[in-house]
Simulated assay, not measured.
Amino acid sequence: MQPAVSHRVLAVIVAYLPDVGVLRALLDTLLAQTAGVFVVDNTPATDRRVEALCAALPQPALHLIRLGENLGIARALNIGIDAALAAGATHVLLSDQDSLPAPDMVAALLAAMDDLQCAGQRVGAVGPTYTDRHTGITFPFQAHIPGRVFYGHRRPDAAHPTVEALTLITSGTLVPAAVLREVGPMREDFFIDHVDIEWSHRVRAAGYALFGVGAAVMFHSMGDQALRVWYFGWRQESAYSPVRVYYRIRNFVALCRLPFIPWHWKLRNGWYWLGFVYTQIVFGRQRLAALRMAARGLRDGLRGRMGPWR
C-alpha cells in the first residue's frame, strides 16, 4: 500500500525525558513512512539524550527542535506543526514519544482518508486503532450510536473499516495541512492532557468529521503503568502520577466550560472522570496525593486557572 505521489507527509514528535530505546524505534518507523520527521524536544537543556539520539541518526529528513525547557505538549505541537507546514507538508502526522506505529500505518491512514474524501466526506483527521502497551487493551472510538442520547464506543470491522469518531488522541493522528490552517493551533494553556480532545471538538464544530481507521495500527502507552482496579469487576486501567491527575481533571473541567462541545458529551464523559478519580485515589500508589491534586484540579478548572501547574 503506497501513498499517492501528491502526498507529502511530515511527522511531528513531542519528546520529554524519553526512553531512548522507545524513541529510537519510533524514529526508525516514521522515517521509513514519511517524507521527514520533526522532533520537538521539551527536555531541559541540561539533558542531551534526544540531541545525542538524533545525532546518531544522520538523516537529512530528521530535524531536531530543542526548546530547552518543558513548554508543554500543546506548545511543542504548535512549533512542530508550523515547521512542518513551512517545509511544504500536505499532511502532518502527530505523535507522542512512546508510540510505535505498524510499518504501514501512515499508508493505511492516507488510503482511508483518500477513500473518505472521494466518498464526499469532509475529513478533518484520521487516526489509527491503538493498543495500550501497559494493559494490552485495544481501545474503541467514541462514536454516536443511533437512538442513544449519549455516545457509545465502536470498533472498525470488515463491514465498516472506518468509524466516524467524536475525538482522536494526538498520537498517530494524520491531519491535512488545510485543516490545520483553518481550525488553528492547539490550546497552549491546556499544557498537557485533553489538548487533542479540545482540538477534536473544535474541528467537528468547524464542520469536519474525524475517523478511526481499522487498517492503521499503533501501540501506545496511555499512562505510567498498569493498575488493577475493581470497577464492577476487576480490570486493568492505567495509573497516572498525581500531577497528571491534576491536569486531567482541571482540563476536563475547562472542556465543560466550552460552548461548542455538546452537553451530552460533557455529561457522558463526566461519568468516566468520576471513575478515573475513584481508581486513582482508591487503587493508586500515591492515593492521598492523587486526591489532593484531583481537588486542586477541580478548583483551578472552575476558576479558569490554566497553564503549567505551579
Rank of each mutant, 00 (worst) to 15 (best):
R8G: 01
V9N: 01
V9F: 04
A15I: 05
V20E: 14
A25Y: 00
L27H: 03
A32E: 13
R48H: 11
R48F: 06
R49G: 13
C54E: 03
A56D: 14
P60F: 04
P60V: 04
H63E: 06
H63C: 10
L67D: 09
L71D: 03
A74L: 06
I79W: 05
G80K: 03
D82N: 14
A83S: 14
A83F: 12
S95H: 03
Q97M: 14
S99I: 11
L100G: 02
L100F: 09
P101Y: 03
D104A: 14
V106F: 00
A108I: 01
A111S: 13
A111N: 08
C118E: 12
A119C: 10
G120P: 07
R122T: 11
R122M: 10
V126I: 08
G127V: 07
P128I: 15
P128R: 09
Y130G: 00
R133W: 04
T135N: 03
A143K: 01
I145V: 13
I145H: 05
P146Y: 01
P146D: 06
H153F: 15
R154H: 11
H160D: 06
H160F: 08
T162E: 03
A165E: 02
L166S: 00
L168Y: 02
L174C: 10
R181H: 08
E182A: 15
V183Q: 00
V183F: 08
G184R: 11
M186D: 06
M186E: 08
M186H: 14
F191N: 00
F191W: 10
F191Q: 04
D193A: 11
D196N: 05
D196G: 02
I197P: 01
I197A: 05
E198L: 15
R202T: 10
R202D: 10
V203C: 13
R204T: 13
A209V: 07
G223L: 00
Q225K: 15
Y231R: 15
F232E: 12
F232Y: 13
Y240C: 00
S241E: 04
P242C: 09
R250V: 06
I261P: 04
P262L: 12
P262V: 11
W265K: 08
G275H: 12
Y278Q: 12
T279W: 00
Q280V: 06
F283D: 06
L288C: 10
A290P: 03
L291F: 15
R292M: 11
A294P: 07
R296Q: 14
G297N: 01
L298E: 03
L298S: 09
G301W: 02
G304I: 13
R305V: 11
P308L: 07
R310N: 11
